[in-house]
């Protein structure tokens, strides 16, 4: 897969060079460098508000970068916007169709916008068959199920045989079954049509299942990149997440064999600098959770037998990578993205 080139011999479908977008005083995208190979499925993973949609907007020629440049399908997104648009397809997070028209009418308009010749219908029929849509269905698409609407949208995006497909949060708001179905479809179209796919998601599972390579984005910056496997090795072990009923001096735990680091949960401190009244929570990185945990529990019990509230073992996945890199869970970043956070690390 990694050696796929397009006909011109170029290897990269998308190249971003210090791509930056500033809205007023807010930096949405901050000097992003990206290289995405032809034929791959690339995932841009990050919490809501991390800048994923802004990146897609710039790469699809909808908004121009404040700084930096981007090459999409071998064309510059600012200077050759129309050429870029000829070669890309786009699938929105919320399905966007003309609800008062039938599926064929929707497809017809799309074919006109790409100025496809008379064989548009043939192409559409092949795609619709492939996605198990009924071409004779003359219901208005407003009455379709979400899954069907999504399939129709993908049909429309593939109609002009784009080199690159942008999918902005493709499975948001879908139920588990439809999501799985869509994952299979995405893999299939990547394989059979050879389309390069850039998708953004804030579902860690999705990125893990689908993407050949990934970049994790937070506050407009790419904080990690690589394949799912490579990223997992960043964490370098399991993470034990232990919540306690009361505060205690946890520095004694660092001497246990197999424990790599101990970190307290990040908290937003009160204005007067005092600790908010929230139970202590530790993130302990260990070589192997199963061997360390018994020792760890007995050590804690020596100190106070009834202090542990919950224990959670995280094997390395993208969520733990994000946690490792930012010190926060995805959800926490989304919940508190406006508030000012500062870190608090006790020294031992």
């Amino acid at each position: 897969m990694n050696n796929v080139c397009n006909i011109n011999g170029h290897q990269h479908a998308i190249i971003c060079n210090k791509l930056t977008k500033v809205y007023g005083s807010q930096i949405a995208v901050d000097h992003i460098d990206l290289k995405i190979r032809y034929g791959s499925i690339f995932g841009l993973l990050g919490p809501n508000g991390a800048g994923k949609t802004s990146v897609i907007k710039m790469l699809t020629g909808l908004s121009s970068p404040t700084k930096g440049e981007a090459i999409v399908a071998d064309y510059n997104v600012v200077k050759e916007t129309l050429k870029v648009k000829e070669n890309i397809g786009w699938i929105s997070s919320e399905v966007i169709l003309d609800d008062s028209l039938t599926s064929m009418e929707n497809i017809w308009i799309q074919s006109k916008l790409h100025s496809l010749g008379k064989n548009w219908k043939q192409k559409a029929q092949i795609l619709m068959k492939y996605f198990e849509l009924d071409e004779r269905d003359d219901k208005k698409v407003g009455q379709f199920s979400t899954g069907m609407r999504k399939k129709l949208e993908i049909t429309m995006a593939l109609l002009h045989e784009p080199k690159i497909l942008f999918m902005d949060e493709p499975t948001i708001g879908l139920d588990a079954n439809t999501r799985r179905l869509l994952w299979n479809l995405i893999k299939k179209i990547n394989k059979e049509y050879g389309v390069t796919i850039l998708l953004t998601t804030h579902y860690i599972e999705e990125a893990d299942v689908l993407c050949d390579s990934l970049a994790i984005i937070n506050h407009g910056k790419i904080i990690a990149r690589g394949s799912s496997q490579e990223l997992k090795s960043i964490v370098g072990g399991d993470i034990l997440e232990i919540e306690f009923f009361s505060d205690f001096d946890f520095s004694i735990l660092k001497n246990i064999d197999g424990i790599k680091t101990i970190r307290e949960e990040y908290l937003s401190y009160k204005d007067d600098g005092s600790r908010p009244e929230k139970p202590l929570k530790l993130f302990i990185k260990v070589k192997n959770a199963e061997t360390v945990l018994p020792v760890l529990i007995s050590e804690i019990n020596k100190f106070d037998p009834n202090i542990i509230k919950t224990i959670r073992i995280d094997k390395p996945n993208l969520e733990t990578i994000f946690l490792e890199l930012t010190g926060m869970h995805f959800k926490e970043v989304e919940d508190t993205s406006d508030k000012e956070f500062y870190t608090h690390k006790r020294s031992f």
């Binding site: 003309d98 008062s100 028209l101 308009i109 006109k112 916008l113 100025s115």
Partner: peptide, 22 residues
């Protein structure tokens, strides 16, 4: 020119169809 004309026809037809559908 052909492409622009095609696009115009596509979008204009959509406008007209939307009117008759309502």
């Amino acid at each position: 020119t052909k492409r622009m004309l095609n696009q115009l026809i596509g979008l204009y037809t959509r406008e007209i169809k939307n009117t008759y559908r309502n």
